[in-house]
Design a binder for these strands. Structure first.
Length: 683
DNA sequence: CCTGACTCA
DNA sequence: CATTTGAGTCAGG
């Protein structure tokens, strides 16, 4: 019911206070709680009853007195469990009003839906899920209201919508969430996924803390990068216009195609629909400087629009993690996506190749790109004109030279807060190790126990019976590596052939040899495929269930390996979070097999312990975590040691060697962050 | 194989 | 005319 008077408020809160599990849904004046948006009303449900409390609707009538919001939060704080749909969103708004999030169990029903849906289902939003599970009527009111909101241009700010329209909508969502909660819980119990569900409940709170903390951004670097990129992209654009003879929209694939066609150049590669492709994979194979310049322009445009513009003026970036976002159990990261920040640096100048060695070096790099992106081509970098090769020089590697102002790395924008170290923990070859864990081959397990083992080399020796002195050892090592990832990714013989640059027949032969000699690999693969064929699902070590089409068993192999790695990492993150609670240090980011932590100077002795926690596991193989110091930013990683409680690391290029020196040398202003104050338990 | 952001049509 | 949708491309694992 819509709560409009103080009497109704008192009756409602008296009723609610009897329950320790509340389903909540916030309506807000925008999507960004950490950037100043706030709630305009709260929907709450217990035991079949639902209420809507309007507080800040801009329609003049019928708001509740603003004093009642803190009162409602007071009652909400007495309950034990908060249930919601995509709950971290609502929590950020509720915490601003006084909810004590850290005390609560946080049940996200969208995560429960993920655990109880087939891997084919991707539309997990509330309306689609209600319709899918309970029929069209269950979602009709949602769809209707959204149309009204759209028609009145209220979609960006729900507080413009009167409570008598928004209230019932909110209550329907609360009721739908409650219904899904009950049904999903039943399904989770019947499929014996309670453990992985409990893992997700704990993970939700960990992710919530990471999102609220956010990562500090070097604004000066953002602004200087934007200037440099804009200048360079104009230069590149001029080059393109000169070569092509006319000005056109380089971002338009269609217009790029017209220009190439007018120059008499066809693409060696086709799109899925049979048109000429002008993708990177196609452009690498075109022996004309225009191809290189277009590729360079695309890169610069992408860097500006995706990785620079969104960061302007923000001293802290708060991503949103979706622990329901993937079918495997991995996280995804949105607004901004901090899981696909480029690793390599970029060069913003023409690169000259003078010596023979330099030419060979760039040829090698371009060949690698051709092999990776070009499908089944016989073209090699040796056949490319020198002026064509030259345009490729702008792609750098992971080592950024801070003193060179013609180099730029996006990861350079992310820096530690004052008095903190940024430390990255990186699992080495996590998915390969998980693959070996599932295979259970004792020889491989022994191999994995050695420190710094070259797995792909060893796999090549076993699979293809070559030793290190063999003339084609490098080829066989690459072959083994490609097949290992091919199996992990569940690719077929045609795609494998593309990657190996051979015929499908040859690819099948290599794969068969690999399967024959890596004992257990075929058995694992086949048994997963057979399980899916026979009963339509498989179950991981963490009891996560994957429902898969019966003819798509190969996918399940990937789900198991990728998903088990993800669940293991989630489990370890929960432990790290427990370990760091009450300290001045915290986890900030997760990139699938990497964790980035921000360690306070007083906490340096915790740094190694975090690695121990991450390496701990119940697999039959050890996991190795590489630990590096990111200084002065995420773009530069150093090996380091702790001596007398201080971090000591080796210089890279001609840069300051201690963090203190960096802070003086660096261009970053101290952080004055309003957003930060809102919702942090550690601030 | 698993993603998300941007751009164009 | 404004807004939504799908495809293509490319960044990460």
């Amino acid at each position: 019911m819509l709560v409009t008077t103080i009497e109704e408020f008192n009756t409602a809160t008296t009723h609610l206070s009897k329950y320790d599990e509340w389903v909540v849904d916030c309506e807000t004046n925008g999507l960004y709680a950490l950037q100043g948006n706030q709630l305009c009303g709260v929907g709450v449900g217990v035991d079949g009853a639902t209420y809507y409390f309007p507080f800040r609707h801009q329609t003049l009538d019928s708001n509740l007195d603003s004093d009642l919001l803190p009162k409602l939060m007071e009652v909400m704080n007495t309950c034990k469990t908060i249930v919601g749909y995509n709950i971290k969103f609502d929590l950020k708004f509720l915490e601003k009003e006084g909810l004590e999030v850290q005390d609560k169990d946080l049940v996200d029903v969208i995560v429960m839906v993920r655990l109880t849906e087939s891997t084919n289902v991707n539309a997990l939003n509330l309306t689609d899920t209600l319709i899918r599970r309970y029929g069209p009527d269950a979602g009709a009111y949602d769809i209707e209201t959204k149309q009204v909101l759209r028609k009145n241009k209220w979609t960006k700010d729900f507080s413009l919508c009167p409570p008598d329209i928004l209230g019932p909508y909110c209550e329907k969502d609360v009721a739908g969430t409650a219904r899904l909660y009950v049904d999903c819980k039943d399904k989770i119990i019947r499929s014996k996924q309670e453990k992985v569900w409990e893992l997700e409940v704990d993970l939700t709170k960990v992710l919530y803390s990471m999102e609220c903390a956010g990562v500090a951004v070097d604004n000066k670097y953002v602004e200087s990068s934007l200037g440099k990129l804009t200048k360079r992209s104009k230069e590149v654009l001029q080059n393109i216009y000169e070569i092509s003879g006319n000005e056109f929209n380089v971002a338009s694939v269609a217009q790029v195609g017209e220009v190439f066609t007018s120059l008499g150049i066809r693409s060696p590669q086709k799109t899925l629909k049979g048109r000429d492709s002008w993708s990177e994979g196609a452009l690498v194979q075109i022996n004309h400087p225009l191809a290189g310049w277009i590729r360079q322009y695309r890169t610069l445009a992408k860097l500006i629009s995706t990785y620079i513009e969104p960061y302007r003026g923000a001293s802290t970036m708060h991503t949103t993690y979706a622990n329901w976002g993937t079918v495997t159990g991995r996280l995804s990261s949105r607004e901004p996506n901090l899981q696909n920040i480029p690793r390599n640096h970029f060069k913003l100048h023409d690169v000259e190749f003078n010596t023979e060695a330099e030419v060979t070096e760039i040829q090698g790099r371009v060949d690698a790109i051709i092999a990776a992106k070009g499908q089944n081509t016989s073209i090699s970098a040796k056949s490319l004109r020198k002026d064509v090769l030259q345009v490729w020089g702008f792609v750098g590697d992971e080592s950024l030279d801070e003193t060179n102002d013609k180099q730029l790395a996006i990861r350079r924008m992310f820096k530690p807060r004052p008095d903190h170290y940024l430390v990255s923990y990186d699992y080495s070859q996590m998915e390969v190790r998980m693959f070996m864990n599932y295979i259970g081959n004792p020889d491989m397990l022994d191999l994995m126990k050695q420190e710094d083992v070259d797995f792909h080399g060893e796999a090549a020796k076993i699979a293809f019976k070559v030793d290190k002195d063999h003339a084609e050892y490098k080829f066989y090592r690459q072959l083994a590596k490609t097949i290992t990832f091919g199996v992990i990714y569940g690719i077929g013989k045609d795609k494998l052939a593309g990657q190996l640059n051979t015929s499908p027949k040859e690819a099948s032969k290599y794969k068969a040899e690999y399967f024959k000699n890596i004992t257990g690999s075929k058995k694992f693969f086949d048994s997963v495929v057979r399980m899916v064929e026979q009963r339509g699902w498989v179950k991981s070590k963490y009891n996560r269930v994957y429902k898969v089409d019966r003819d798509k068993g190969y996918k399940a192999v990937n789900y198991l390996i990728q998903g088990t790695s993800a669940d293991l990492l989630s489990e370890r993150m929960i432990e790290v979070s427990k370990f760091l609670s009450g300290t001045k240090s915290r986890m900030l980011l997760q990139v699938h097999d990497e964790i980035i932590c921000e360690i306070h100077k007083d906490d340096t002795l915790l740094i190694h312990k975090i690695r121990d926690i991450l390496q701990e596991n119940s697999l039959n193989i050890p996991l190795m975590v590489d630990m590096e110091l990111c200084e002065p930013s995420w773009a530069t990683k150093h090996d380091f040691e702790i001596a007398d409680g201080k971090v000591v690391f080796e210089k890279k290029s001609s840069l300051p060697a201690t963090v203190e020196e960096y802070l003086e040398w660096g261009d970053s202003p101290p952080i004055t962050d309003k957003e930060l104050v809102t919702s942090l338990d550690w601030s």
